[in-house]
């Protein structure tokens, strides 16, 4: 269920923010509403990070053994189990503190948490440093 929610959220965010997508801190480009476009840009540029963050949080609050109706395409196609679903259960049970069950669901569960966390941090970090660099460039050239 969480994946459906996430995908929907992503698509809505994407379509609504297309207008302000070009608002870069550029000298020649002036957006009419700077503050709002700044916030939207903050969301759009870090879209990937927000997505992983929400999915990790939702997985942390999901009961690890739950087998509700899923959005998983492999299940809908009729396969018994899929690697991704095992990963979801694995991450969930790892968050609940059941390490061995987590490993049994999918051996990559803990690694996945680590990789996703690194990715989230790196997305935020990269965007932040780039904005700062870009501002510095524009500032230097205006002098």
């Amino acid at each position: 269920m969480w994946c459906l929610l996430n995908t929907f959220f992503a698509c809505v965010l994407r379509t609504f923010s297309k207008k302000t997508f070009l608002s870069l801190p550029c000298k020649d480009f002036k957006s009419d509403d700077g503050m709002k476009s700044g916030i939207v840009r903050f969301f759009v540029h870090n879209f990937e990070a927000w997505f992983w963050l929400t999915s990790l949080i939702l997985l942390a609050f999901m009961p690890p053994e739950s087998t509700q109706t899923t959005f998983c395409v492999w299940h809908l196609l009729g396969f018994e189990s899929c690697l991704g679903c095992g990963l979801g259960h694995s991450i969930s049970s790892a968050f609940h503190g059941h390490w061995i069950t987590s490993f049994k669901f999918h051996p990559l569960g803990l690694v996945a948490i680590a990789i996703l966390t690194i990715r989230i941090v790196s997305v935020f970090n990269q965007n932040y440093t780039f904005e700062r660099l870009n501002k510095k460039f524009t500032h230097d050239k205006n002098l």
Binding site: N6, S55, V73, W74, C82, L83, G84, C85, A112
Partner: peptide, 14 residues
């Protein structure tokens, strides 16, 4: 991320 995607079928296609 590439390895994670490869071994989980793109995080269950999501």
């Amino acid at each position: 991320m590439g390895i994670l995607y490869f071994f989980t079928g793109g995080l269950c296609l999501i």
